[in-house]
Design a protein around this nucleic acid. Sequence first.
DNA 1: CATGAATGAGCTTTCATTCAT
DNA 2: AATGAATGAAAGCTCATTCAT
Lengths: 225, 225, 225, 225
Amino acid sequence: MDATPPPHLSPRKRPRQARASVTVDAILEATIQVLLAEGIHRLTTTRVARRAGVSVGTMYQYFPHKQALIYALNERYLAVLAERMEAACKLHHGATAAQMVEAVVNAYWDAKTERSDVTRALYRSAVELDNEALIKAFARRMDAAMLGMLATASNGRNVDVQRVSATLLAVIFGTVRNVFEQNLDEAAQAGIRGQLILMCTAYLGAPASLAATRGGRDSRARKLA
Amino acid sequence: MDATPPPHLSPRKRPRQARASVTVDAILEATIQVLLAEGIHRLTTTRVARRAGVSVGTMYQYFPHKQALIYALNERYLAVLAERMEAACKLHHGATAAQMVEAVVNAYWDAKTERSDVTRALYRSAVELDNEALIKAFARRMDAAMLGMLATASNGRNVDVQRVSATLLAVIFGTVRNVFEQNLDEAAQAGIRGQLILMCTAYLGAPASLAATRGGRDSRARKLA
Amino acid sequence: MDATPPPHLSPRKRPRQARASVTVDAILEATIQVLLAEGIHRLTTTRVARRAGVSVGTMYQYFPHKQALIYALNERYLAVLAERMEAACKLHHGATAAQMVEAVVNAYWDAKTERSDVTRALYRSAVELDNEALIKAFARRMDAAMLGMLATASNGRNVDVQRVSATLLAVIFGTVRNVFEQNLDEAAQAGIRGQLILMCTAYLGAPASLAATRGGRDSRARKLA
Amino acid sequence: MDATPPPHLSPRKRPRQARASVTVDAILEATIQVLLAEGIHRLTTTRVARRAGVSVGTMYQYFPHKQALIYALNERYLAVLAERMEAACKLHHGATAAQMVEAVVNAYWDAKTERSDVTRALYRSAVELDNEALIKAFARRMDAAMLGMLATASNGRNVDVQRVSATLLAVIFGTVRNVFEQNLDEAAQAGIRGQLILMCTAYLGAPASLAATRGGRDSRARKLA
DNA sequence: CATGAATGAGCTTTCATTCAT
DNA sequence: AATGAATGAAAGCTCATTCAT
């Protein structure tokens, strides 16, 4: 991520030599592996170092403490995720709103599903951490990508794209996480995925007359179509 | 919750006397307080016991280990939440689908917001725990309540209520959590809440023609109206 | 000592039960032993605990960290020393100035010599510590005792007892430490002890005419006799 | 100092080339700086090397281990101090005993005060070290200088110059250190300095009749005058 | 029954020292 | 010669859990 990390979480030294870079990669990979194989409770610096095939000392040359390690892990993961999502958005510039939504849901869902164990592990690792900055930065990037895409929608214009974008993101990201935590089987997951797309599509095309009209919440997005 | 807890997580003895029940209450309350005041990392058995005004030994009479304590906490919290949600559902039997959705979103959102610090603390505490059983049980209860309510919808019938219900729950619960984690200000939260209601309403009223049609995911819910 | 210790150095809990008190004593005694047998560099919490026959955990119940341990040690030692010195002073109320000085030097020297290994060990242990408060408190007590005694001198009155007292203390304490650090043999030590007494006596009886008269330093103590 | 250092403390190679000497100087200077800026506990080889602008590896070329580094530092400091003291002594050959004493006290006090932070830092650094040899050697040099000077005293002769010299040195050095450790303000320090001079002067001029006469310690110095 | 002192495995982190480059 | 990445023993400290009182 391009979120400049809070100083206390930044890595101790950026790897300059190829060798060092390999080391850092090995450590981060080992972190995931330990997380998967043993769970957060057994995610100890010693174990990570051993699994990475380096000494604790070496690990501490690159990560000033455990938190920094986990931070880096999340950072990397989110950076990849963000890139994939941005690519997906860019690819659908000019498409219909429905296509856009479908693309975003699928991109996100696939990215998370691909290695669902890693996904789950990272969700849990975040508890060890003050990762608000990271999440905020990710949200900003996603928002920008989404807004950029929605602005090019072939079939409509929305007066409150800002709000629509924020909502879509919260709904999609939230739902995916929830589904993950329910540990549903593939079929059930696929079912909900389809429904989610449907729901988002309906939302974007929903005529104003359906709007909830209770206090304060009704300044709704105008229809895109 | 009525989820029979995994044997290793069950409290050592069910409190039968009033005195014991008071003690258990004090301990659970203390747990929340420590969680709020000091964070998960400082949530230790000793601290909880001290805050509850009992000795560690006594605490271990009621909770055979730390996990059981946190389990009980989550159990209680979810039980209350479930009751509130069930009540909300029951209250809207016979209403329109749109009213139902609005009621559910609002009930859940309000329950979570009421003491958002506690909510967040509990979200975090869950990491210490294998709470899958708990979540599953909660999901089942919510599902039943939702299904029961939807079946009475005054303005329609749905051929795949099962799937609609599961979807609505995943979306609503997921979105709320996501919004919580973004730490948005009140206004932004209210905005998304409104949009979420809109979205769900649109979903329930969406005509079939908008359905996504990609493999396996298109066995969509037929319109309710 | 009655110096209220800086909060970060104070013991975690005061031993209330006899058992606990025994434990604390054992730990402090073990600390000295380790200090003597292995040197400061090997004075580790684990080693102390093992030698004391308790677990590290137990040790940390009474001393929140290593510094607190060393602090307590010095505190105890200085308390005993202070008492002995005060007793010696009290015993010579009404004596001649020469007798007083001799008594003070001898009392201090004897106290230090009695277990010279402990003395040396403690001198060294102090480096691990911010013991300024302790030293200050000790100095104040000594000053009070000294002043109280000098005021009763049978053979004279001094216009600047304050300064004389401070000087005597600095000289006596300093010299003893210096002699200790030189690691002289018994004979040489005894020799210097005698000379020190002589010197102090001479100082108290010195006629004004010998006073150094260079800038600012000559506001000398008037003769006692 | 010309104390042949214990073999395990000697620098790995004596710097012969100017370049090497510069490096050694830089390292020693860096050591002091780290000591002052960070305290003994943070005096690490890496930090010293970085501050000196060399690599750890290079540093280990000159100092086989940390102790050797600190040893060299103390050696240098004591060498300079010894030279200054010797100069002061030489300068007062033929003076009166009183002038001599005053000169010695002032020279020592000034040397220590000039950079009192460095003084204190070095006092503390010595704990890391077996510096007995160093101290002994320094004592010998001081003794020689003192004896040489006292022998030329214009106003008297002393039958036990040896003992007088040893006493004066112990008293002066000890008192100065004690004053340092009390952390007194300038005024109080100056006051005691004056009194110390007075006391030493009185000692040298003290008539035999005041001598302490308790066993073994009374072979006192006869008057100089 | 209730207490809380005692336990000790196990955690994170440091740092003197080595040695391949 | 110079470098600095890598090492790993060892430090200080925590905390869930037990059990004698």
